[in-house]
């Protein structure tokens, strides 16, 4: 691969200054599981490489008052092992556990999953489903918070500026009684890109009425996005087979309308329906936390 200058600061301030001065010619190295292969194939040829793994402020899961902050360079393994995430967001833990194999999970980071914004991302749809906010920092503007859904432009592209660093992901702690489900379908049981995945979070009233729901399918859309039309069908209603079937039909209608009919639709459309139905029923059958 083409050589570059390598910078590995310990402090956020230094990192922000470094990219502010270099912008487009600099790439940020987090887990490296996507970036390093791209460097090797010379799909990207940066002049500067900023290693952010040594920046303390970017690491780890913090339990704040109403929310949880996941540092951008928190690895998938660290997510799986985090008590806080297991308690509040099992959806993210399950999604992180479905990534690659142990070596990839030991290096790959939640921040990288967001920034790469690959259509087959496993954790990103969960963050979208949980209405995560991104903590972005730059030398110029300091810290700003944006909804994750707002920065996902299209596959492999975000609106995060080149002088900005994703420093953390903030997620509101779920309201009591929130349940979630995740399923990934791959061509094999490990080291597989998602053929499809699905992240669902929902809450029911004591009488069973769905009072909150969030649905994000993965690997079918250019970017992960909540299925608002499907969610509104379900909101305020009690789940019945007819309702869930109608929601499943709506889900694939939205997907096909957005993503278009591609060669894989013949398979993915019916299978997404099936997976949606079974994840929904599984989540509905679960006792709330």
């Amino acid at each position: 691969m083409q050589s570059f200058q390598f910078y590995s600061p310990n402090y956020l301030e230094d990192a922000l200054k470094y990219i502010a001065d270099r912008k487009q010619t600099c790439r940020t190295l987090a887990g490296g599981t996507d970036l390093i292969p791209m460097l090797k194939k010379e799909e990207i040829r940066p002049d500067y490489l900023l290693n952010i793994n040594e920046v303390g402020e970017l690491k780890g899961v913090e339990d704040l008052d109403n929310q949880v902050r996941i540092g951008a360079t928190t690895t998938f393994t660290e997510m799986i092992e985090s008590e806080t995430l297991n308690r509040f967001f099992p959806l993210l833990v399950n999604a992180a556990a479905s990534v690659g194999g142990p070596q990839i999970r030991n290096r790959g980071t939640i921040g990288g999953n967001v920034i790469t914004n690959g259509p087959c991302a496993d954790v990103l749809p969960g963050i979208v489903a949980l209405d995560g906010q991104l903590e972005l920092q730059s030398k110029q503007d300091g810290r700003r918070l944006v909804s994750v859904a707002d920065v996902l432009v299209t596959a492999y592209e975000t609106s995060i500026r080149s002088d900005e660093l994703l420093t953390g992901i903030l997620i509101q702690k779920p309201v009591q009684g929130t349940k979630s489900g995740f399923e990934k379908l791959g061509r094999r049981n490990a080291m597989a890109k998602a053929r499809l995945n699905l992240s669902i979070a929902l809450r029911q009233d004591p009488n069973g009425t769905i009072s909150a729901v969030s649905i994000v399918p993965g690997a079918v859309m250019p970017v992960a996005v909540r299925m608002n039309d499907v969610e509104s069908m379900l909101l305020g209603r009690k789940p019945t087979p007819v309702l869930i079937q109608a929601a499943a039909d709506k889900l694939v209608e939205v997907v096909v309308n957005t993503a278009g009919i591609r060669w894989s639709s013949e398979y993915k459309v019916p299978v997404l329906k099936n997976i949606f139905k079974r994840v929904m029923w599984r989540v509905l059958a679960e006792d709330p936390q």
């Binding site: 390598f6 590995s8 190295l29 887990g31 490296g32 599981t33 390093i36 292969p37 490489l49 290693n51 793994n53 393994t77 142990p102 070596q103 990839i104 030991n106 290096r107």
Partner: peptide, 15 residues
Amino acid sequence: DRAVDSCLVMALQAQ
């Protein structure tokens, strides 16, 4: 203490 693919670690990350 963690298994990593050494092909996916830049040498200077091991500093």
